[in-house]
Amino acid sequence: MEGKGLIQIYTGDGKGKTTAAIGQGIRACGRGCRVIMVQFLKTSDSGELEIIKKIDGFDVFRFQTQEGFYWNLDEAGRSRVEAETKAALEFAERVMADKKCDILILDEILGALSNGLVKLDSLIRLLGNKPEGMEVVLTGRGAPEELIEKADLVTQMQKVKHPLDKGIGARRGIEY
Rank of each mutant, 00 (worst) to 15 (best):
L138V: 02
E132S: 09
G111P: 03
G142H: 13
E90I: 05
W71F: 12
T43V: 13
D74P: 02
S79T: 05
K119D: 14
I51A: 14
L89T: 01
G133F: 08
V81F: 01
F58K: 08
L127F: 10
V154R: 13
L89Y: 06
L106A: 08
G142N: 15
E82I: 06
L164G: 05
R78W: 06
N115W: 10
L164A: 13
P163W: 04
V95W: 00
G77P: 08
I51C: 11
I174E: 03
L49P: 04
L126T: 06
L153N: 13
L113C: 11
F63D: 01
Q158A: 13
L120H: 06
S114Y: 07
T85L: 10
A143I: 00
A83N: 13
E145F: 12
D56Y: 05
R125E: 14
G173K: 02
Y70P: 02
K54W: 02
E50W: 12
A83C: 07
R125K: 15
E84W: 07
T139Q: 00
G128E: 11
E67H: 11
L127S: 09
G111T: 04
G57S: 10
W71R: 11
E135M: 10
G167P: 08
T139Y: 02
S122T: 07
D107F: 00
I174Q: 02
E50L: 12
K100Y: 01
A87K: 14
M157W: 09
K86S: 12
K166E: 15
Q158M: 12
V154H: 13
V95G: 00
A170F: 10
G68A: 02
E67K: 14
P131F: 11
V160P: 06
G77Y: 04
A151D: 04
F63W: 03
H162N: 06
Q64C: 12
K86N: 09
A87F: 05
S79Q: 14
A170E: 11
E67G: 05
L127N: 10
K86P: 02
G133M: 08
I109M: 12
I168A: 11
N72T: 07
L73M: 03
C101F: 02
T155C: 15
S122Y: 08
L153C: 13
I51D: 06
F63P: 03
G111D: 11
A97G: 05
I51W: 06
E93V: 04
R172C: 06
G140R: 09
D165F: 07
A87H: 04
E82K: 15
L49M: 14
G173M: 01
E108L: 01
E90T: 05
T65N: 13
F91I: 01
A151E: 10
L73W: 03
